[in-house]
């Protein structure tokens, strides 16, 4: 069951999958994945290694055949009618892949020619991503950052409405990451939809508007990032002289309490909103005065770890990832 965190559920989606499944031999890569990406903004697809992110993107783009399920790109069923919609979709899957012995310009010229785009557009997109001065460098001589920028330039050849970037900052140095982040944000600000998959949760938190967290080939949680990280998921950290007394008082008041690192981590009743003052009043009611009291806001990382840890726990209780022989 997918936990939804949409502040307002969109009526149409840029990308949508339902019951998507794929297995490679006996390994299940994607197991009934439901994915919803709203139109406009940056949507992040998050998940641990092997959770099925890249396979999902490959299926959406027609590189890998799905075993089961339904996929839509810009409202068009794919892969059946992918050729009708591909001109609105730009994508980079895993690392940028071009002919290594050819120059950046020639690589783009070939792609442009294949879709009937004027060669002048090649110069424009190279300038757009800051590669105007390096257009005649061979692809194999480029740094990873340049390769990523070339891949983004390639996606812009089509002037797409939806962009799909798989691990766009993988292997980049901090300035490269910053550049790509800015580029992605600029693309989204221009009204386009960007779907990125990434491991760098801090980066995603800075750039994404909405997220889907997937694990073991299915969606665990999705929604607006702001809603996901809202106060409802914050917790209060308390340090008191008598932990048992505090624990009991807070529990009776309806809070969930976990003792960790000598401190009590208090979350709201039913995982809902929490106020530090209310926690202090409960403790004051039993004559306990906190030596430390702070509010910890949820981060994407804490949510991700919480969600994927739960999934891991479920997995270890016996859900099969790989079929028994």
């Amino acid at each position: 069951m997918t936990t939804q965190f949409w502040s307002e559920t969109p009526s149409t989606w840029a990308i949508r999958t339902s019951g998507l499944s794929k297995r490679f031999g006996r390994t299940v890569a994607v197991a009934g994945l439901d994915l919803n990406v709203p139109i406009g903004g940056v949507h992040a697809l998050l998940g641990p290694n092997g959770s099925g992110k890249t396979t999902t993107l490959r299926m959406l783009l027609g590189l890998v055949r799905a075993d089961e399920g339904v996929m839509e790109l810009c409202g068009v069923p794919v892969p059946e009618r992918l050729d009708q919609v591909i001109s609105y979709v730009g994508a980079i899957v895993e690392s940028p892949k071009f002919a290594p012995s050819m120059t950046l310009r020639r690589n783009l010229e070939i792609l442009a020619m294949s879709i009937g785009v004027n060669r002048r557009r090649v110069t424009e997109v190279l300038l757009e991503v800051g590669l105007g001065g390096r257009a005649d460098t061979r692809f194999r001589q480029c740094s990873l950052g340049m390769k990523q920028r070339l891949a983004i330039a390639a996606t812009l050849l089509k002037e797409p409405q939806v962009l799909i970037f798989d691990e766009p900052t993988n292997g980049l140095d901090p300035s490269g990451i910053q550049e790509i982040r800015t580029t992605i944000r600029d693309i989204a600000n221009a009204g386009r939809t960007v779907l990125i998959s990434s491991h760098l949760l801090g980066e995603v938190e800075q750039v994404a508007d909405s997220v889907s967290i997937i694990g073991r080939g299915r969606t665990l949680m999705e929604g607006d990032l702001a809603t996901l990280l809202s106060g409802d998921r914050s917790r209060v950290v308390v340090e008191v002289a008598d932990h048992s007394l505090a624990h009991e008082a807070l529990r009776q008041a309806g809070y969930a309490v976990v003792l960790s690192g000598g401190r009590l981590h208090v979350t709201g009743p039913g995982g809902g909103a929490i106020e530090a003052g209310a926690v202090a009043r409960v403790l004051g009611g039993v004559d306990l005065w906190p030596q430390h009291l702070s509010v910890e806001r949820s981060t994407l990382e804490s949510v991700f770890l919480e969600v994927t840890a739960t999934e891991h726990l479920t997995a270890t209780q016996g859900l099969p990832r790989t079929e028994a022989s």
Partner: peptide
């Protein structure tokens, strides 16, 4: 074969999926 070896075939198919 070089298109498959470099992975460039994926990039091409992202432009011409047929």
């Amino acid at each position: 074969g070089a298109e498959f070896a470099s992975g460039n075939i994926s990039t091409q198919l992202l432009f011409t999926p047929r």
